[in-house]
Nucleic acid binder design. Structure first.
Lengths: 336, 336
DNA sequence: TTGTAAGCGTTATCAG
DNA sequence: CTGATAACGCTTACAA
């Protein structure tokens, strides 16, 4: 077994093949200016020595790493892994490797991350993290790292963005609900620190209600299935609240409310209706199936990666992509 | 905005601070042999110039990248993202960055991946991929890249492994089932190409039945919720099969069977019982809750990363960790 | 404590 | 078509 210092270098290959290292370099870079004969010879010695070029040295020399940084919160949500899956698929297709920068909810850590981004020499980044402000992105791109930012409107020279539009469809649904005689009190589940997307939805929720002059309710909930389940179980049995139309951040939370309601003897959707904002495939796996506002995060991931490669090739024309959420009627709400 | 060639280098910092680049290097590496005064001065210019060391150059010079490669199949399963979450958490704690190498079910691609591993200069890898054989791992470690391999018994000098033990608990449950008078036919859902873990379970399933002299059934199923749901819906309504104890690979598949049964008017667990082999949190979110064989993949991820750092520090004593699955009784099977 | 200079493994520019 | 040789940005003996 070779030890670290034994890494076969281009120089050793050159020597063994009886050519200069420049020639070897040409061979591994598939330059055309090499005689088939010498190419053959070099390739053979590469094989026999088990030589693999050092990406590090190549990157240092070329200023390209073929590495893409992905900045996402470390939260272990299904929609995040969907996003990642989408990015991964295209990255592979385009021959990029992904480096993961996962942030927590701390601002400091986010800053440390951008520090790392720079030192790591990624060719570009995909950012889906609410901790990073427009300024942070600007800082990143000031180091000439193109970025595609998800759920944050900050496109610029070398920054593309992908926007989600939940607002319209949410508003429409709320209006429709009341128009069609919806009578349960509408309740928005506020989750602390759950990011811009949820905040925007909450704002839309409140604004729409105020426009309509309808009463509404916002209650805090914990961003965990178990806690939320327990809280609602208590609520539903204590008799405080026996009915309602609950708008939840994501499937787990929606399930928590739904299960709590059912386990308290309430009937979905007769007594309690539930809407999950970020629907994943679990929305149609659970029973009753969950009505959701759906955006295909795998598609978002793919698109992000496509935009980034375009950006890298300096041929991104449309710097902004909008994903409109679609309302998917299922069993957890009454069809109106 | 600076362009690529404008990256501030250690040399520029040195010049601006009026010291040699060696001193700057010492400062950024927190060497103690630097006068507080000069350190101050250097740090100031680092700030004002916005200098960030090049990880590439550092890595090239030191032969350490602080990058860990993670090789996992690209399949978008919850238990995989749990694993990744675990790895991520500890990687961050230990100040490593993760590079993702996702493989498909093709052997060629797997080989291309190991090629990439080498050129990428990762300090170590965590492997959870059934496409990679012991030889492949050996190849990786012949390039002096320590590895922690999950679900594959191949520990060696610089390779640690994490093993799952589903076999005993599965066997015990099967035996117990019949001892306590279980009468439904037991059916194992075979998924093509779903990896070693499932194959081992299948083997245990068959072997146990043959030992007991009990009839059993293995049926093929598709590794997707929708397809499996449809197939079983058809089966349950066509009357071929109205009852059974189904052993499924993971939660989604188990849900498919469970939902198909319920939607066909069958009652869980009276008519149909269901066991999910790899249980995730969705097992207790869906209703009826799923009986599972559970291994906490987040813990597995954490442990893998811990083992790897130990390996990197050459202080890993216990090269093998075993995770024993625990049987979790829930509503989808009858308690016996 | 600080500076000088030789690597680290490539690519790329020139000559030949 | 091929070979020297200078970058790329940093670390690290060795000297001063």
């Amino acid at each position: 077994m070779k030890n670290l210092k034994d890494r076969v270098t281009i120089y050793q290959v050159a020597q063994a093949a009886g050519v200069s290292l420049a020639t070897v370099s040409r061979v591994i870079n598939k330059a055309d200016s090499v005689t088939p004969a010498t190419r053959k010879k070099v390739e053979a010695t590469i094989q026999s020595l088990g030589y693999k070029p050092s990406g590090l040295a190549q990157a240092l020399a070329t200023n390209r790493t073929t590495n893409i940084g992905v900045i996402i919160p470390s939260a272990n949500y299904v929609y995040l892994s969907n996003l990642l899956a989408g990015i991964t698929e295209i990255a592979k297709e385009k021959n990029y490797v992904l480096t993961l920068f996962s942030t927590s909810h701390s601002r400091d850590e986010a800053l440390a991350m951008i520090e790392k981004i720079i030192t790591t020499h990624v060719d570009g980044v995909i950012v889906f993290d609410d901790q990073l402000s427009a300024d942070d992105i600007k800082k990143i791109s000031s180091y000439n790292v193109p970025a595609v930012v998800i759920d944050n409107k900050i496109s610029s020279d070398r920054v593309g963005d992908i926007l989600f539009s939940y607002d319209t469809v949410l508003r429409d649904q709320i209006i429709n609900y009341y128009e069609k005689g919806g009578e349960k009190p509408m309740v928005f589940l506020h989750v602390h620190n759950a990011g811009r997307l949820l905040s925007r939805c909450e704002k839309t929720f409140i604004k729409t209600h105020e426009e309509l002059g309808r009463p509404y309710k916002v209650i805090n909930c914990n961003d965990s299935y178990t806690r939320t389940y327990q809280d609602f179980r208590r609520m539903f049995t204590s008799g405080e609240e026996k009915t309602g139309y609950y708008i939840c951040y994501r499937d787990s939370i929606a399930c928590a409310v739904q299960n709590a309601a059912m386990d308290s003897g309430l009937v979905i959707p007769r007594d309690v209706e539930i809407l999950s904002l970020i629907g994943t495939k679990y929305a149609y796996i659970v029973r009753p199936t969950l009505t959701t506002m759906h955006i295909d995060m795998i598609e978002v991931g793919k698109r992000a990666m496509y935009m980034l490669t375009d950006l890298l090739n300096r041929e991104l024309v449309e710097k902004t992509t909008k994903f409109e959420a679609t309302f998917i009627q299922a069993e957890s709400t009454i069809k109106r």
